[in-house]
Simulated assay, not measured.
Amino acid sequence: MSSTSPSGVGIAHLPNQKHKIISKKGAHYTLMVCGESGLGKTTFINTLFATTIKDSRLPEKRFAKQLDKTVEIEVTKAELEEKLFKIKLSIIDTPGFGDYVNNRDSWIPIVDFIDDQHENYMRQEQQPTRHGKIDMRVHACLYFIRPTGHSLKPLDIEVMKRLGSRVNLIPVIAKADTLTPKDLAKFKENVREVIQQYNISVYACAVDSDDEDTTARNQNIVDASPYAVIGSTEIINIDGKQVRGREYSWGVAEVENDDHCDFKKLRNLLIRTHMLDLISSTEEMHYEHYRQQQMANRKFGEPKVPRTKKVENPKLREKEEELRKSFTEKVRDEESRFRQWEQQLIQERNRLNKDLESQHAHIKHLESELDNLYQHGRSGSMRR
């Protein structure tokens, strides 16, 4: 049935009502930044939101055990407001990720954190009272890639495969100003080929739109992936124009110059044009997939099924233990030999120092005798 009234009954005002409700409630938005240390993740976040977020607010630190190493997961929370719209922002970082010589299974703490946020939200939904739910589900994961100019490392491939099935994964090439435009374009192509080869699921925003300009803009954003970025909060004066960028002897790499990097495209994707889609796809796809998977494997109210451990072969375990003991003994023997050698060096150094002191004392004695002889000789010549 359709209304024949020329002015309608008012259902066209529903978007306005929705806008008012959302504006009043605000939104929860969680970004995860992942990648090796030293790639400028913190600087990028501060550049993205045009304010110092990660330095001005003390982060909450969570720790996860990984192969006898402690992996630290930092949760930084902030509340931003623009034109009376408030957003509760959470930044998830994994300092030290990929810094170890052996990075096997280094993805586990990150994946567990993402799954745990889905689990926490699902358990809150199962409670009789669901008011004031805490939502820390990760809406976008920026995976920072070191600008090697070659291709993705095995660690990058493994982690991105695990993350892509759980979260909106967005690959980011860090420190784009360290590569020439030609090398950067080639590196981007190499990364795209590896992503396609290993079927890594990455976030791609919808392109089609009723508006041609919006469609072209969205296509431009999609084509830029993986996004090459430059992060800087430094303001530089260029011919009277204030820009954010990095100053070098050859010139200035501008953060918001599309000819220099993809920062503006990535910012549009994350904040200005597709934030709602990132939040919705997390709810409707990633969280729903987790919820269905868990409910198919356990009864209502049961705790989460723990990660299954690998079944170990007793013989292999015994052999591994023997090798570990042998290695430990060799290390202990080497340490003992090193300490003995160190003691010998110390003793030799002390002996040489004593000899040197003795030689210095002897030289001073000879110099004193020489002075005395000189004085006597001079006195004798004066008497004559």
Rank of each mutant, 00 (worst) to 15 (best):
T4G: 11
K18N: 12
H28T: 07
T30R: 03
V33I: 10
L39Y: 01
T42Q: 13
T43V: 11
T51M: 12
S56G: 05
T70N: 11
E79Q: 13
E81P: 04
K83M: 07
L84P: 03
F85N: 07
D99T: 06
Y100D: 15
V101F: 09
N103K: 06
S106L: 00
Y121K: 06
R130T: 14
I134W: 08
M136F: 14
R137V: 02
C141V: 06
P154E: 08
L155N: 09
E158H: 08
V159K: 00
K161Y: 09
S165G: 10
V167S: 00
V172C: 06
K182S: 14
N190W: 02
E193R: 10
N199M: 05
V207E: 15
D208L: 02
E212D: 14
T215R: 14
Q219A: 11
I221F: 05
V229Y: 01
T233H: 05
E234I: 00
G240F: 02
K241W: 09
E254S: 02
N257F: 04
L270K: 00
R272M: 10
L276P: 05
E288W: 00
H289Y: 05
Q292G: 03
G301V: 04
E302M: 04
R307K: 13
T308R: 11
N313T: 09
N313M: 08
E320H: 05
E322G: 00
D333M: 06
D333H: 09
S336Q: 12
Q340S: 09
E342L: 02
Q343Y: 08
L345C: 10
E357W: 00
H360V: 12
K364N: 15
E367P: 05
L370E: 15
Y374V: 01
